[in-house]
Amino acid sequence: MTVAAAILAEANNLPEGALISAKELLHLGSREAVDQALSRLNKSKELMRIGHGLYVKPVQSRFGVRAPAPEKVVARLAETYAETVAPHGAAAANRLGLTTQVPTKVIYYTSGPNRKIKLGAQVVELKHAPNWMLLPGTGRAGEAVRALVWIGKSHAGEALSKLKRTLLESEVKELVALRRALPGWLSQSISQRLMQHG
């Protein structure tokens, strides 16, 4: 079995979005042989190069071949590099019903460095963000924080009034509890809108 065939056999057993890098394939051949095989598999479109030395396996669907879902690739990147990653504020605002605008770009915040990954025709951007913007990663309170930052200071009040009606009570409490970690304007808006009675 050639090195390329062996790499492909391993790739076929991986879940969608799993990262493939030469470092993890050195049991199949020398670094040079593995690099050459990965390059060949990329040219023959059996693997997709998404960044320096990183590959993913395209997904075969009944509609043909597509790139793996961005959120799956981003989740694997976060796991591999021990980063915290969260969807951008525009996506969070859309999901929480604060805007009907659908983001045209796929952007994620990360605790790691800025970088772009290419998934077929789509470019996924990872932007470094301060820790408070990544807390808590995937919960709705965290989404609310990122959505409010994207909406901005002047419209945060009305967005919070809406969130007070749509979030669960436990999520509102969680958002209130995050105030200490947030910038002054945001912390103040949350106090004013969410802690008033009635």
Rank of each mutant, 00 (worst) to 15 (best):
Q36P: 03
S39G: 04
V65K: 13
A121K: 13
H52C: 04
K173D: 14
S61E: 14
S30L: 09
G97L: 13
G120S: 07
T84D: 04
L163S: 02
T99C: 09
T80K: 10
R180E: 15
A5H: 07
S170G: 06
S189T: 08
G17P: 03
P183D: 08
M48L: 15
A129V: 09
K173A: 12
G89W: 00
F63C: 03
I7K: 02
P68I: 05
K164W: 12
I20T: 02
G139Q: 14
K105A: 11
R76N: 12
Y109A: 02
A90R: 08
A11F: 05
A22D: 02
G184K: 11
S191N: 10
E125T: 14
R180K: 14
G152K: 10
D35T: 06
G152C: 08
M195Q: 14
M1L: 10
K118G: 05
E171Q: 10
S170F: 09
G142Y: 03
Q192F: 13
Y109I: 05
S154E: 15
E174G: 06
L167N: 01
L160P: 00
L167F: 09
V65M: 12
Q36M: 06
A91E: 01
L96M: 11
K173Y: 13
V85Y: 00
L194T: 03
K162L: 13
L148H: 07
K105E: 14
E71N: 08
L168Q: 10
L194F: 11
S21E: 15
R193C: 08
G17A: 04
S161T: 13
P130A: 07
T166M: 08
G139W: 13
R140L: 13
R76L: 05
K127I: 12
L28D: 00
V102G: 04
F63H: 13
E83K: 03
Y81D: 06
A93Y: 00
L14V: 11
G29Y: 12
T110R: 00
L38V: 07
R62W: 04
H27P: 01
P183L: 06
Q192S: 08
S170D: 10
E10A: 03
R76T: 11
E158M: 12
A69G: 04
L160V: 01
V56E: 01
E169D: 08
R140H: 13
A91H: 12
R140S: 09
T2W: 07
V56C: 05
Y108A: 01
R66F: 07
A4N: 04
P136M: 08
L96A: 03
R146T: 03
L119M: 02
L8M: 14
V73L: 00
L47Y: 00
V73K: 00
V34W: 00
L54N: 06
V34F: 03
M133T: 02
Q101M: 12
G137A: 15
E24H: 15
M48Q: 02
F63T: 14
N12V: 11
A5D: 12
H27Q: 06
K72Y: 12
W185N: 04
L98E: 04
P130D: 11
K173L: 14
S170A: 11
G184I: 09
E143C: 06
G157S: 15
V74A: 01
A156T: 15
H27V: 06
E143Q: 14
T99D: 05
E79D: 11
